[in-house]
Simulated scan of single mutants.
Amino acid sequence: MYIDKHNITGMVYFGGNFSEIPAQYFQSLPCPVIFVNTVLPNCLDTGTYSSVQVNHYETAWKQMEYLIEKGHKDICMLISSRIDTSIYQVRWQAYEDVLKKHSLEHCLSHVVESDYRCHRAHRNLTGYLTDHPEITAICSSADIMAPGALRAIHDIGKAPGRDIALISFDGIESMSYCVPSIATFEQPQPEMVNYIYDLLLGLMENKRQHQHITFHARFMENESCTGTAGQA
């Protein structure tokens, strides 16, 4: 086993989906493990590992609600893939639930996939927005795709933030330097890193018990949602 071979005494694992992994695999972990933003089973003995998460579902819910509160009724969702089973699937589920709550099920067909690649987001959205001029807002499940969306709006002759709103998730620093700057929910990375570091050292030294904590994302309003639906 890799952990034994390399004498690893602690591990931080990012992402992934282990919801279908049998419980015995978690019970036999050979060293302290902290799962970060990982989809985990609901019925595990949580004393055998630690987890640090962001409130993905609640934050994604706020993303979509924000657009709807601004009057948008034709919203396109920019996602990685329909078969993505990571925490981005959790975000997608929140989008779907909010749209159903507001009887906007027709938006569920407004989905553009990009495989987390900016150039694909640009290419696929350019075509989709051209074919669907009724779209007034884009909800991106990750910041890494958002600049491609911004450029797509520009390239079809519309003004980002005024004609088509754009909201995203993650809080990557570069979002504040786009024109217009992109509205996003920021993961509190410094706080998360410090917590993970302290917890892992404590676990490795047998000074702490396993913990499970959820951090809350912060909204950075910026400029890409300044308009309201129908303003243009």
Rank of each mutant, 00 (worst) to 15 (best):
Y2C: 09
I3N: 06
I3H: 09
I8E: 11
I8F: 10
Y13G: 04
G15S: 09
G16K: 07
G16Y: 10
N17K: 04
F18C: 01
A23V: 07
S28I: 03
V39N: 08
D45W: 06
V52P: 15
Y57A: 01
Y57R: 05
A60E: 06
W61C: 06
W61L: 03
K62D: 12
M64L: 12
Y66W: 13
L67F: 02
I68Y: 01
E69Q: 13
E69W: 11
H72M: 00
I75G: 00
M77R: 01
M77L: 08
D84P: 09
S86E: 07
R91T: 14
A94F: 07
K100R: 01
K101C: 12
H106I: 00
C107Y: 13
Y116R: 08
R117N: 02
C118T: 06
H119Q: 10
A121N: 08
D131F: 15
P133F: 02
C139K: 12
C139D: 14
A142P: 03
D143Y: 03
A149H: 14
G157V: 13
G161N: 10
R162D: 11
D163S: 06
L166F: 08
F169P: 01
G171E: 11
Q187Y: 00
Q189V: 05
M204I: 15
E205I: 00
R208D: 03
T214K: 13
F215E: 09
F215A: 05
M220Q: 11
M220H: 06
E223T: 00
T226C: 15
G230L: 07
Q231K: 11
